[in-house]
């Protein structure tokens, strides 16, 4: 992959080889995403949230996004509020500690967004099937409930199968292969070896299922640094197509060992999401009104960002 301008956040002192680097800018990475794509985006509650990438998607006016998700509330609510979300497979969207995802809920209530519900294990099993290269997986959840009984947009959501060995009945869920996975992680090297500190949500299943994987990270480190902590590597380089360096790229979500969630800003977002008008104002200020991540971080302010930094001993 060709590299373009990479010097902008080159404070890490890492030597960047032009021949092996997968680093591109957020704008370049997002430009490769086609309208109408089936995407799976990272995030668990208020952490691992790929906010910098979602902002860029909104700035570039992506539309008709078809989301395959588990509980990635931030990506879903942002895209819903920007009118970019056409439909969503989901198991739970909730702003923990605040309440429902208001942009998303409004979109569903007004009939603008189609939904298809799963349990966490149900939807993740669809991704896991794709990751394993099998066309379905037999599971033991969702049976007997309206998650299966109520008809949704995907005709092939599930079937009942009988085990050829024991005759036990299973719910079979079909594999699903998103076009692109967009994952925010802790750090990566130039070739895309990607590490996550702390609990890792369903990043592995998402990345292994998707046709293409874009990783955004807090920092780029050397391969030697990666190899000092191999147990933290969640994606080896050959699973990753592009790497985007976005410090504080999960803000107002948090990243374990880097910074905490910004409750002040989450509250501001959530309040803004109460009406389409106030949310539009929010987007005008924090997304459309800035050129890129740096403009956004400047708006949040260094002082505020510094208060969020993690204690190195505790990780938060």
């Amino acid at each position: 992959m060709a590299t373009i301008e990479i010097g902008r956040c080159g404070s890490t002192g890492v030597k960047r080889s032009k021949t092996t680097s997968k680093i591109i800018s957020a704008a370049e990475a997002v430009a490769t995403i086609v309208d109408g794509s089936n995407l799976t985006l990272g995030g668990f509650a208020h952490s691992l949230t790929p906010i910098a990438m979602v902002h860029e998607m909104i700035r570039q006016g992506k539309k008709d996004i078809d989301l395959t998700s588990m509980g990635e509330c931030w990506a879903a609510d942002f895209l819903a509020g920007a009118g970019a979300l056409r439909r969503a497979r989901l198991s739970n969207y909730m702003f923990e500690g605040y309440g429902r995802c208001l942009n998303f809920s409004r979109g569903v209530q007004e009939g603008r967004i189609q939904v298809e519900d799963y349990s966490h294990f149900g939807i993740t099993s669809r991704l896991q099937a794709a990751a394993l290269g099998v066309s379905y997986l037999p599971i033991k959840v969702m049976a007997g409930t309206d998650i299966l009984n109520v008809k949704t947009f995907d005709e092939d959501k599930y079937k009942t199968v009988q085990c050829p060995f024991t005759d036990e009945e299973y719910v079979a869920v079909r594999s699903i292969q998103p076009d692109v996975a967009i994952i925010h992680a802790s750090r990566a090297d130039l070739s895309g070896n990607t590490q996550v500190f702390g609990a890792s949500s369903i990043i592995e299943e998402q990345a292994r299922a998707a046709k293409r994987v874009i990783v955004s990270v807090e920092e780029i480190v050397s391969s030697a640094e990666i190899m000092k902590k191999p147990e933290s590597t969640i994606l080896p380089s050959f699973m990753v197509d592009a790497v985007v360096e976005v410090p504080f790229g999960a803000h107002p979500g948090g990243m374990f060992r880097y910074y905490n969630q910004d409750d002040k800003h989450i509250g501001r977002y959530w309040e803004a999401s109460r009406t389409p008008e106030t949310f539009q104002e929010y987007l005008n200020e924090f997304v459309y009104g800035v050129q890129d991540l740096w403009g956004y971080l400047k708006k949040i302010g260094i002082r505020q960002l510094m208060t969020l930094r993690a204690d190195p001993k505790l990780g938060y």
């Binding site: 509980g71 989901l90 198991s91 739970n92 969207y93 909730m94 429902r100 995802c101 998303f104 809920s105 569903v108 209530q109 939904v115 519900d117 799963y118 349990s119 966490h120 294990f121 149900g122 959840v141 969702m142 409930t145 998650i147």
Partner: peptide, 11 residues
């Protein structure tokens, strides 16, 4: 009213 959904509860 659209509520949050199952999450892991069904599982």
């Amino acid at each position: 009213v659209r509520l949050p959904g199952s999450g892991g509860a069904n599982d």
